[in-house]
Design a protein around this nucleic acid. Structure first.
Lengths: 144, 144
DNA sequence: TGTTATATTGTAATGATTACATATTATACT
DNA sequence: AGTATAATATGTAATCATTACAATATAACA
């Protein structure tokens, strides 16, 4: 399901929300709240950071956005809520999707009494760009 | 390798560090910095939060501790640096270990040019205790 | 068009983590 | 054992992401 699909029926549509939704629709860059804020601000300079967080919360509640904890510095958001996994660059923090259905079933005993609701595989490594420029004093976050 | 093994040869040993190391050795509770601070403080009331963070940084640099991003509220630390995965309760944030070697190899194409250095599977769910007490206004972090 | 619930904004608060300057101390070398 | 010194501990302040809140504005619906 697309993030925008039928969303106007679920939430009150405002120009700010429309701009955030437009930015997120089909976006595979796994933006942080700040990324979203900075991008939307170009068209709506009056938008508030709080609105970005509020909208993300609303979208999370409606399962239209997934919050990722893979970046140790900030939360990242993914409008693709279908099952998939992620690969992050330890240097620039660029995240890419991994669409593989790994066998991750575990027994009840292994689950130690927990009821499991979801699974996520995180791959950590170095992206092609950072591998090339390693050992040159780099350490900057990706800003594609 | 145990966390304490040969560690005195690598770092300057102090009573504070010894207390932190003792707390971490064999600890499977995946404590936060605050957990460590509060526990160590019982014996060493003068210990500083900064010392806890500094020591954790030192241990990370020496690969004696692994920093976990699985809890969205705070970083958690694991003295077991051998390959394993984790299961977290969405309610109380209690984390348990999963010692299963899942097949997680991906092709070069699937890695999209990244050099992969490690893999981590995160399971999310509800622990037995929280499942029982659900819908009773609970929402509290685990404090075993 | 008016009403009203809901959203937006700006600012302030919070909470985790880091930076920094000063005081202390473990270690190595006489 | 005594001392030098490089590393560590401490306390406080700063930073950064995120959340709380109160006042204002507005989309949706009658």
């Amino acid at each position: 399901m697309k993030i925008l699909e039928n969303i106007e029926k679920k939430i009150k549509m405002t120009p700010q929300r429309a701009a955030i939704l437009k930015y997120l629709e089909g976006n595979t860059s796994h933006p942080s709240a700040e990324d979203i804020f900075e991008s939307v601000r170009k068209k709506y300079p009056m938008i508030s950071f709080t609105t970005v967080y509020n909208t993300l919360q609303t979208l999370k509640d409606l399962d239209r956005v997934r919050e990722l904890n893979i970046d140790d510095e900030r939360k990242r958001y993914d409008p693709n809520v279908n099952l998939h996994h992620h690969l992050i660059c330890n240097n620039c923090k660029k995240i890419v999707d991994i669409f593989i259905d790994f066998p991750l079933d575990i027994s009840e005993e292994e689950a130690q009494g927990y009821t499991i609701s979801c699974r996520h595989v995180e791959f950590y490594g170095l992206c092609p760009k950072c591998r090339k420029t390693k050992n040159k004093g780099q350490g900057n976050r990706n800003r594609d």
